[in-house]
Each structure stands twice: as C-alpha cells, then as structure tokens.
Design a protein around this nucleic acid. Structure first.
Lengths: 351, 351
DNA sequence: ATTGGCACTCCTATAAGTCGAGTGCTAATT
DNA sequence: AATTAGCACTCGACTTATAGGAGTGCCAAT
C-alpha cells in the first residue's frame, strides 16, 4: 500500500524530495524543466521525465492533466515526511514567543487556549489542543448540594482553581447535613491526590469488606464513585484560527469548507482523530485522506501528545492544507507540546 | 435618509412589495415583465418600468447592470419589513417542535443551546442566543476557597444547579475557617435572593454604619461585593448553525465568509449588536450594513429580546443573508423568544 | 395616465483560435 | 546501458468573435 524508502534509489528520492519541496513552496504542478534546474542532481529534463514516470507508476506523484507538471499524492507526501524531510529547528525568537505566551497565563484553561492560539498565529493555520486528561489533575476540594428528587450536584475543584460540576443520581435522598458530612469525609481523605488515584482508592474501598466502614462513609464513597467513575476520555478541545483555513485555495471549495467546519463544530471526528495521536509519543502526521474522514480530505493534521511528568496527558496540533510547510510546522508542534507540558507541571512552574 | 411609507402611493408600495417578495423567493433580479404578471396590479411592463424608475430614484431598488432587473437596496428591504411585510404565523407543528425541544432540556445552559439550535435548524441559518442576565438568577449557595497570595476562589451556585466561579483579590490573607465562616454567613443571609438583590443589599450594608456589623461579617460582605460588584453585561452567547451560512451564494465570497466567521469567533461585534436589541422589546431587524459592521455586510440579523417575569433578560436571533424569508423568520424568532422566556421562568416550569 | 413600439445596452453562452507548458517516445549520443 | 536531444502531440489557459436574449428608457400613440 505505501511505498518504502528502500524501494527507490537515491536519485529518485532526491528528485521526489525536490519536487515536493517545490510544490509546497510554489503551489504549482512541477515540471521536468523546473526540476532540472532546481535539483542538486544535474540531469536533463528528459531523464527527469523518465524518473517521474517511475514515481508516477509507484503512485507517489500524479499529473492533474497531460500538459501539467506533477504534484505529490498522499503516498508521496507520506514518504516525504517519513524519510526525506529536513526539519528546520525553530529560531530562538520563536521559541521565546511560545514560552512567553504560555508563561503569561494564569490557569490551565487559559494556558490551553494560549497554546492553541500561539500555534494558529505562528503557523497561520488552525491550532487545536485537547484539555488535559484527568490523570494530571489532583483533587482540591469537593462539595455536594442536594437537587430535587434524588439528584445531587457535585462541585469539585482540581489543581489550584479549576472548578468542575456534575449531577449524579443517588439511590436515596440525602439531607444537606449528610451531604456535608460526606464531603468533609472525602475532602479529608483524598484531598491532594490525583483523580485517578482517587478513583482507584474508591474502587478498592468499595470492594473491601463493606461492614468495616460505617454507613455515612459508605454513602460518601458511593457518591464519589458516581462522580469519578466514568472512564471519561479526553472529550473536548480548544480550536483556534479556523478562519485561517479559509484563505487556502485548495480548501476554497464551498462544500469542502462546509464539511470541514461542520466536523469542527460536531467535534467527535476531531476528538477521535486526536485520540489516536494520544497513544503515541512525539509528533504524528495525518495526511489527507489518511485520517479516514471525508471532511479532512485536503487537510493534514500534525499532532504531538504532551506530557507532564513523563505521562501523556493530552494532544495538540495544527490543522492545515495538505500542502503545508511540514519542515516548519513539525517543530512548532513539537516545541509547543514540550513547552505546554513543562508549563503544566505544577512542580516546575513558579507560583 | 430612509424612505417613509407615506412618501409613496399605494401602487408603488404594492409593486415594491411584489418585487421584494419575488427577489427573496427566486434570488434573481426582477424585471418589469415578471412583475407585470406577478403583481395583483394589472399593469403593463412599460408602466411598471416607470414606477421602478421612481423607486430607483428613491434608492429603494437598483439594477446590477443595464439589462438586468431590479433588486432591493437596504432601504428597500427596510421599507419592506417595516411597512409591507405580511408575517406568516407558524403552524402548530412547528410551534410544537420548538416547545418540545425546549422542554426536554435539563438546565438553563442546555436550554439556551437548544433554543439556538432549534432556530438554526428550522431556519437553516445561524441561531444565536445570549446567556440570561444575572438579574434572572438567584443565589443558591456560595463558597470560598483560599488560593496562593491573597486571592480567593469563589464558587457560587445559582438557580438550581448553575455553577459559576471567579477569583477575587482580597486585602488580607484568610484562613480556611474564616472563609468558611464568611460563606456560612452569606448563605444564611442571601440564599434564594436574586443576584441583583444581593448586590444592592450588600452595597447598602457597606454604606450603613460599619461599626454595628462585626468584623467577620464585614469580611464576608466585602468578599461578596468583590464577587458580585461588576456590572457585568451579557458577555457571551451561543451560536449554532454557522455552517448553514456557507451554503448561501450571496455569502460565498471567501473574504466575506472569512470576515464573518472571524467576527463570530471574536465575539465582541456580535455582542455589541445583540446588546442593542436588548434595549427594545419584541422583534428587531438589522439589514445589511445597517449593523455598522463590515463583516455583516450581506447579512441580516433578526432578533428578539426574551423576558422572564416581564423583565428582559437576554436576546436571541437568527443570522442569515439579507435575502431571507423575513415573513417566516420573524415569527420563528418571536415565538422562540417567548417560549424560551416561559421555559426559563422557574415559577411556571414544572420540576 | 397608460401602453405599444423600438432602438439600445450589456450580460451570458458558445465556439474558435492561439499560445505555451509539459509530456511521451524514439533515436542519437556518451 | 544510461543519458540526452529532438519532435510530435496533448491539453488547459487565455483571448476574441459572435449570437442570443433579457431588460431598459424613451417617445409617440391611445
């Protein structure tokens, strides 16, 4: 299905590389004459035409029509980014801008937003950042408020000041005092622990001999379980700079644009795509239809997971047209992921 | 600047009405021949041409080029919606759909979202709803958590289960106990009152002889003031169905679309526009450049404020191309506003 | 006051023709 | 055996020409 580097000789690879680079920078199909001048290889247009015919047979490039040059196919881009790309490191000014931009934020959600916006601004495409997984966050405070029927409003604060809330349905109706007691119990027991740790502790508690724990404690544990049980995935992300995508001619088609933006507002496809990158560390790239989603047909997605304390807690990335300057986008995403991970680390960040 | 109904005779008005209706339904410039057949007036094309020339002189219609028909100008649309429009009442099926859609929601924010989405779906344009003003909401519970330095995280619950939070900067550093005490005091005193009522009560309290209140109480009052002091305007809205706007040929221009969507994501222009409608009751319409914002050039905005207990608490509306079916959109917006107001009223809604 | 008639304008669509870029193939060259 | 020059060919982009038609404005007739 996909073509390996070893299936080709150096000359063909060099030619493909030059062709893709040229196409990315100029946006026009690349012909043999141009390649003959552009490439470090000193070959006549005729020779290059032969090589290009081979590359076309392998499905790496194709011609929009007879008398146009060639443009890379998805496979061509894939081989290019996997094996031929020479990544350009960011200059310190840009790193600094990212660093500054992330430092100036006051809390996690602002930082996520800033990361997304910085990437969008720097790359002039769309930036996306998932909210950090719960593993990262530690419980600061929990509180229960009774609602009508046997529903309870749970408010819990994580990290420094992130407030979450959730409605749970309990077996019986609790009084304000009972709820207060439960909250006190949980606060004293689990404060400062990560949500994951809390969850496992609670499960263990439930499995243990239940008679040992008194009834009030059991109620508290049960409510905590309802609150934290869902194995909630990363279920939301911050997307900025979508409008940048409207500038690209390859996405100019109205239907294309509509599908893309519908995918953005429906969120689920984007989430699923980002979830895939969650599994791997480092930069990942989805080119064109590789994503499997119609809406992202002419788009590439460059992602990187970001980690806190060596644990992957989220994903961020850049969405743009397939024809993007990968050698610049990749380091942007890479560095942003690292800086965001570092900035989120409560141990290294200054208060 | 704008043309009044009385500046024209009935025949001209009838003709303008037919022309606008025809243009709205067909999307093509309307010529004298078509009007001659379409209008209830039995006039020859030649006569109609004379009338149209008058209407053009008044700036109500204009011709894209010599051999095209006429299309309404902004003034033409304005006169049409103000004086000529025959609004079509919604059929009961649609009212029911709106009613059902709003009833099935569990809390305020879902209801706002539902209202926006319902309008977008029914009109196939973009729906927008501002969050209700604070006047509407009553305080249910308040809580303080200490942060680093002398900052305090305030969490307060309004209505049934709407959770808000805010960081305030206090004069001195408070202990957990002190904060707890303050919260208790405020909860006992102001629970169940509207935020506005709370705010005025607090201001009064502060102005009163301060020596009478003990120190702990004073701290509580001060913190409450910091929490509720800002005369916060409606500062956010829910927008849905933006992608519907990509389908309209009159907005198809890439730059137009980009400007429009940038205005959406920047929010401030939209907010300002919606704020204007807040002042008046009932349906308001901004046609094309009337809004004053470049981005809304080819768009019209049909809004209505919505009220709870006869008090305006928010605005909702529909954004679409200038060439929209006002006679249908207006009742959609009108009815949605009324239903949303009713649904938000805690006294009439069933638990 | 209204209408038929008519010359005029300007858009739209179609067709034809030119140009140039780029190709594939073949034969000559290295 | 690999490379290259040469050449006929294809095809899209652009220009120009032409016909057709919709709609107008104006004037004279009703």
């Amino acid at each position: 299905m996909s073509v390996n580097k070893r299936d080709l000789n150096d000359r063909s690879l060099q030619l493909l590389k030059t062709l893709v680079e040229r196409y990315i920078s100029e946006g026009q199909p690349v012909g043999s004459r141009i390649l003959s001048k552009d490439s470090v290889l000193k070959l006549s247009p005729a020779t290059i035409r032969n090589v290009m015919a081979d590359l076309e047979d392998l499905g790496l490039i194709h011609s929009p029509h007879t008398s146009a040059g060639r443009i890379p196919t998805v496979s061509g881009y894939r081989l290019f980014v996997d094996s031929l790309l020479t990544v350009k490191p960011l200059d310190s000014k840009e790193i600094n801008r990212l660093y500054q931009g992330l430092s100036e934020t006051e809390d996690t959600s602002h930082m996520i937003e800033a990361a997304s916006r910085l990437m969008a601004d720097l790359t002039r495409m769309a930036g996306v950042v998932t909210l950090p997984k719960r593993e990262l966050v530690s419980l600061r405070h929990i509180e229960f408020l009774p609602l009508s029927h046997n529903r309870v409003l749970v408010i819990f604060v994580t990290n420094e000041q992130e407030v979450h809330n959730k409605v749970i349905h309990t077996d019986k109706v609790f009084s304000v005092d009972e709820l207060q007691q439960s909250a006190n119990y949980l606060n004293s027991l689990y404060c400062g622990q990560s949500l994951v740790a809390v969850r496992t502790a609670i499960l263990k508690e439930l499995q243990d001999d239940q008679e040992r724990t008194n009834l009030a404690m059991l109620d508290a544990i049960k409510m905590a379980q309802l609150t934290f049980d869902t194995n909630e995935k990363t279920d939301d992300f911050v997307l900025t700079g979508e409008t940048n995508l409207m500038g690209f001619s390859e996405l100019a088609d109205r239907n294309h644009l509509k599908n893309l933006f519908e995918a953005f507002s429906q969120k689920q496809d984007v989430i699923h795509l980002l979830d895939q990158s969650m599994k791997a560390e480092g930069v990942q790239i989805f080119i064109g239809q590789e994503s499997g989603y119609q809406a992202f047909d002419q788009c590439s997605l460059v992602t990187s997971s970001y980690s806190v304390n060596d644990e992957v807690v989220g994903v961020l990335g850049v969405i743009g047209p397939t024809r993007m300057a990968y050698e610049k986008i990749i380091p942007y995403v890479d560095v942003t992921a690292k800086l965001l991970g570092a900035a989120l680390n409560p141990k290294t960040s200054t208060p």
